[in-house]
C-alpha cells in the first residue's frame, strides 16, 4: 500500500504542470484584470457553477480510464430532470421525483454497460445511440416545452445551505470523496485502470470484467440522476434541451485534467482541477466582458493548450 501511495504521489507531482499551470495563470490574469474576480462571493459562484459539471466529470474519468466514453450523459441528465419534474408534478412529491431521476439515470447507465460489456458494441457508438434515445424521449415527453410549477422546496437543493455551506458544494464534495474512495481504496478501483490498460490480465485473474464495466457505467448514470436534481433546482423547471451537449464539457474537463484516453491512466484530482479551470475561464471572460465569439475560441484553446502541455511532459519522460 505504501509503495503504491508513494508511486501515486510521485505521479501526482509529475502531472502538476499541465492543468495546474493553466489554472494558476488564469487566476493570476483574471485577479489582476477584474476587481470582482477574487472576491469570496465570486469564488463561491464559480464553485457552484462547476458543481453540476463535476458530477458528470467524475464518473467520466472512470469511464475514460476503461478506454470507454459516455456521450449520453448530458442527455440522460436532461431526461432525469424531465422525469423528476414530470413525476414530482404528478405525485406532488419531490422525493418520488428524485427517485424517478435516479432510476432513469441508473437504467441508462446499466443499459450502456450492458450494450458495451455483453453485446460488445463500442462505447462511442453505444452512447451515441442512447444519447439519441434519451434526447428523443425528452422531446416526446415534454413536446418541447419547459415543465414548471414544481414544489417550492425544490429550490433548496441548489440555493440552500447545509451547515453554512451551499448545498451543491456539499453534494459535490461528497461525490468527490466517494469517487476518490472507490478509485483509490477499493478493489473495484484497482479494476478501473486495469480495464483500460490490461483487460486480459483482469480476466485471467478471474474478475468478471463485464459486471465491473456495467457497474462503472451505472455509477455514471446515477451521478447524472443526482446532477438532474441540482439542475432542476437551479432553473426551477425542466427543459428538454437544458443539458444537451454537457457530455462534451465533461469529457473536455477530464482530458484537460490529464486523464489519458488510452492505457487506463487517470487522475481524479486532475478532473477536479479541469472542471474548476473551465469554470474559472468562463467566469473570468464574462467578468472581463469579453465578446462571446472570443469566449468560444478561448474554450477551444484551453483544451488544446492544456493537452499540449501534457504532451510536452510526456515527451520529457
Amino acid at each position: 500500500m505504501s509503495e503504491r501511495g508513494l508511486a501515486q504521489s510521485m505521479s501526482v507531482l509529475g502531472r502538476v504542470p499541465g492543468v495546474a499551470f493553466v489554472l494558476v495563470a488564469l487566476v493570476a490574469v483574471f485577479a489582476s484584470m477584474s476587481p470582482g474576480f477574487s472576491t469570496a462571493p465570486n469564488l463561491t459562484n464559480i464553485l457552484l457553477q462547476s458543481s453540476i459539471l463535476l458530477l458528470l466529470a467524475l464518473p467520466m474519468t472512470f469511464i475514460i480510464m476503461t478506454e470507454g466514453l459516455d456521450l449520453s450523459i448530458g442527455a440522460v441528465l436532461t431526461l432525469g430532470s424531465v422525469a423528476l419534474a414530470a413525476v414530482a408534478l404528478a405525485t406532488g412529491s419531490l422525493t418520488v421525483g428524485f427517485i424517478a431521476a435516479l432510476a432513469i439515470g441508473l437504467t441508462f447507465g446499466l443499459l450502456n454497460g450492458w450494450l458495451i460489456a455483453w453485446l460488445d458494441i463500442p462505447p462511442f457508438v453505444t452512447t451515441l445511440g442512447t444519447l439519441g434515445i434519451a434526447q428523443g424521449l425528452c422531446l416526446v415527453i415534454t413536446d418541447g416545452t419547459s415543465i414548471v410549477g414544481l414544489p417550492s422546496g425544490l429550490q433548496f437543493f441548489y440555493s440552500g445551505y447545509f451547515l453554512g455551506i451551499p448545498f451543491p458544494l456539499v453534494i459535490a464534495a461528497i461525490a468527490y470523496a466517494v469517487m476518490h474512495g472507490i478509485l483509490y481504496h477499493t478493489r473495484l478501483g484497482t479494476y478501473v485502470p486495469a480495464l483500460g490498460g490490461n483487460r486480459e490480465a483482469l480476466r485471467h485473474a478471474g474478475v468478471n470484467d463485464r459486471v465491473v464495466l456495467a457497474v462503472i457505467y451505472g455509477i455514471g448514470g446515477l451521478m447524472a440522476g443526482i446532477a438532474a436534481l441540482l439542475l432542476t433546482s437551479r432553473i426551477s423547471s425542466a427543459h428538454p434541451t437544458a443539458a444537451i451537449g454537457m457530455e462534451f464539457d465533461a469529457i473536455a474537463a477530464v482530458a484537460v485534467g490529464g486523464t489519458q484516453f488510452e492505457r487506463g491512466e487517470g487522475w481524479l484530482l486532475g478532473t477536479l482541477l479541469g472542471v474548476i479551470t473551465i469554470g474559472v475561464l468562463r467566469n473570468g471572460l464574462n467578468l472581463l466582458a469579453m465578446p462571446s465569439s472570443i469566449q468560444v475560441i478561448c474554450v477551444g484553446l484551453l483544451v488544446i493548450v492544456a493537452l499540449f502541455f501534457d504532451g510536452m511532459r510526456k515527451a520529457h519522460e
Partner: peptide, 23 residues
C-alpha cells in the same frame, strides 16, 4: 505532432472554428 488524441484535438478545433465563424 502534438500527440493530442484526435477526439480532444478536434473537439478543441470545433470551438476555435465555431468562434472564428461567429467573430
Amino acid at each position: 505532432k502534438l500527440r493530442i488524441p484526435s477526439f480532444i484535438a478536434t473537439y478543441g478545433m470545433l470551438w476555435v472554428a465555431q468562434g472564428a465563424t461567429y467573430y
